[in-house]
Amino acid sequence: MLNSQPPLLQVKNLTKTFPVGKDAHLHAVDQVSFTLQSGESVGLVGESGCGKSTLVRLITRLLDVTAGEIHFDDAILSTIAVRQFPQNPYRAGIQLVFQDPTDSLNPRFTAYDTITEPIKRLSSVQGRQQLQARAAELADLVGLPQDLLSRFPHQLSGGQKARVGIARAIALNPKLLVLDEPTSALDVSVQAVILHLLADLKKRLGMSYLFVSHDLNVVRLLCDRVLVMYLGKIVESGPVEQIFNHPRHPYTEALISAIPSFTAQPHPIPLTGEPRSPINPNPSVCRLYGRCPKGEDLCHQVMPELTELSSNHQAACHFPVSSDLAV
């Protein structure tokens, strides 16, 4: 991966708000900026409600943008309306693997129908023999026996349904694969197999991954870089080993400290108090203020911005931690 190359995906000051009453707006994603290079795997982590799924829906154009820009390849996707994007040529370049393989499959479609549906809609391949050959090729790629292509979702196991969902996502040879908790609904033993499959597909097909997960160990295994999100904002960004071994934001440090470990007694760092409201948040107050063990008066007066602390490692904190925490 060459950092001198233009990024595959560039997000600039992306914002999404939802009206929740008179003159009140919930800030789900608030001025988020980051880049993703070709061939790179970026992990997006944070607690439930921090805005990860909303950010993913904006990037995949399932939600319209309130403000900001999404650049993909040589196009600005944020100017394309959600209703128009399914017919856009760039639609094939970004694909999504959903969280629950059962709910994301049409119960009336066989595995073959599911896998070939995006091919029929978004490519020039239409002939029956061509579709059958491509479906067989994709089934082999994801390790799904071809004799299961005629089965409906209720006739497949959880791992087989996950493979169908992955085969559907890679059917159009996308440049970017967005994975929204792709293994959270699977048994632990099946999770390991699917994660190994995803790592293998990335190498073989040269895709980039945006990987959303609550499982930090999975992110450490699969990703090159990590984005840490809290209440709609990116609070830390950096290479995976830097984030895990030397977290600089207090929130990231607390997340890392809570990872279960067999080699050492874990010492979770508590974040006491209640999270701040995402409805009309004060733009001058740090989102973690009130829960942060390092919070001071400055944090209640000036919102910290993402600042470069070391090579490719940024944190939004007035008082970044100097941690040797390793897991």
Rank of each mutant, 00 (worst) to 15 (best):
M1W: 07
Q5D: 14
P6L: 08
L9K: 01
N13L: 09
P19D: 04
V20T: 15
K22T: 10
V29Y: 01
V29E: 02
T35S: 14
S48F: 11
L58S: 02
R61F: 08
H71P: 00
F72Y: 13
S78P: 06
T79F: 02
Q87P: 02
R91V: 09
G93H: 15
T110I: 02
R121Y: 11
L122E: 02
Q126P: 03
R128V: 00
Q130W: 06
L131T: 03
A135D: 07
R151N: 10
Q155G: 04
G158V: 00
G158P: 07
K161G: 06
G165S: 15
I166W: 00
P174L: 00
K175A: 14
L176W: 08
S184M: 03
Q191C: 10
A199H: 13
L201I: 12
K202T: 07
K203G: 06
K203E: 14
L205N: 05
H214A: 10
V218Y: 07
V219A: 11
D224N: 15
R225W: 08
R225V: 06
V228M: 12
Y230T: 06
Q242R: 01
F244L: 12
N245P: 05
R248E: 10
Y251L: 10
Y251M: 08
E253M: 06
E253L: 15
L255P: 08
I259W: 09
S261M: 13
P266C: 11
P268D: 10
I269V: 15
T272V: 12
G273I: 10
E274V: 13
S284G: 01
Y289E: 07
G290F: 09
R291C: 09
C292P: 13
G295V: 14
E296I: 10
L298M: 04
C299K: 05
Q301C: 00
L306M: 11
T307N: 03
S311C: 12
C317Q: 08
P320Y: 01
P320E: 02
L325D: 03
